[in-house]
């Protein structure tokens, strides 16, 4: 009996956690011009409107491009930083380590103000370069973490064996280290992509019209109207995240890579 109660409690907690998503999913099929629950009648009308909305479509395209660029760059930078942190003992190593992890500790709103103040004099506000740099600041800590974990699990003796049998340092990296840390690279890249794709707070400070991302366009849209289009768009975004995570999980095992 107590077991039954316990399971019921757990189910309730999950329901509470998932309720907002559930509500959004249901509302996305509403036909009225404002957000309300429960819906009166259901249709795919809001989805059709989302796909017809040029602002959303082009912002989606930009978000994907920015996300890909950020994911790729964060992996490259993360790999270089991780190699330095894991393989070399140098003065200031602890300091670098702390600096890389600092964005975890600072609220995004504070970071956003800081980044804006830095980018403004460089004329980088509302530019691809600016938004990508800003996103790198918050994603590199994640890629450094996943790649560092992968690197630490690589047996040094295996790399030494490659060296002794004739591999140059670069060949050791390309043929041995890189394949062995690939799961960490992919996981790090996917996480960086998803964070960039989701990021609203910092983006709002950096972009205005030229390189607006999907989250900033959602925010702009909400300021003027609240119709089920937003709900439909949200459902689409959730679906994209789930698909990406499942794909990575199937491909390499996200839990292992993390």
């Amino acid at each position: 009996m107590s077991r039954f109660l316990w399971h019921g409690l757990i189910a309730l907690i999950y329901l509470f956690l998932l309720a907002p998503i559930l509500v959004v999913v249901i509302v996305s099929f509403d036909t009225r011009q404002y957000l309300a629950f429960p819906p009166e009648s259901l249709s795919f009308g809001s989805y059709a409107k989302v796909f017809a909305n040029q602002t959303f479509i082009s912002a989606f395209g930009r978000s994907v491009m920015i996300g890909l660029a950020v994911g790729l760059a964060a992996v490259v930078i993360g790999t270089l930083l991780s190699m330095a942190l894991v393989r070399y003992r140098f003065r200031g190593r602890e300091g670098v380590n702390f600096l890389i992890l600092a964005p975890f500790l600072v609220p995004h709103i504070v970071l956003a103000v800081g980044i804006m103040l830095v980018l403004a004099p460089m004329q980088l506000l509302d530019s691809y370069t600016g938004i990508i740099l800003a996103h790198l600041g918050i994603t590199v800590p994640y890629t450094v973490r996943t790649i560092t974990m992968s690197l630490m699990s690589v047996d040094r003796r295996v790399e030494e064996a490659a060296m002794v049998h004739g591999a140059t340092p670069f060949a050791v990296f390309r043929r041995i280290t890189l394949p062995l840390i690939a799961p960490g690279l992919i996981a790090g890249g996917v996480i960086a992509f998803l964070i960039s794709f989701d990021e609203a707070t910092i983006s709002l400070f950096i972009v205005s019209v030229k390189v607006s991302t999907l989250p900033t366009e959602i925010y702009n849209y909400l300021e003027v109207s609240t119709d089920p289009q937003i709900a439909a768009l949200s459902v689409l975004l959730i679906a994209i995240s789930i698909v990406v995570v499942i794909a990575v999980e199937k491909l390499i095992g996200l839990r292992r890579a993390l």
């Binding site: 003796r157 295996v158 064996a161 002794v164 049998h165 041995i176 062995l180």
Partner: peptide, 13 residues
């Protein structure tokens, strides 16, 4: 040179 390591250190991939 050729070297045989204690735990063999084969390339696992």
């Amino acid at each position: 040179m050729g070297m045989v390591f204690q735990a063999y250190a084969l390339f696992p991939h």
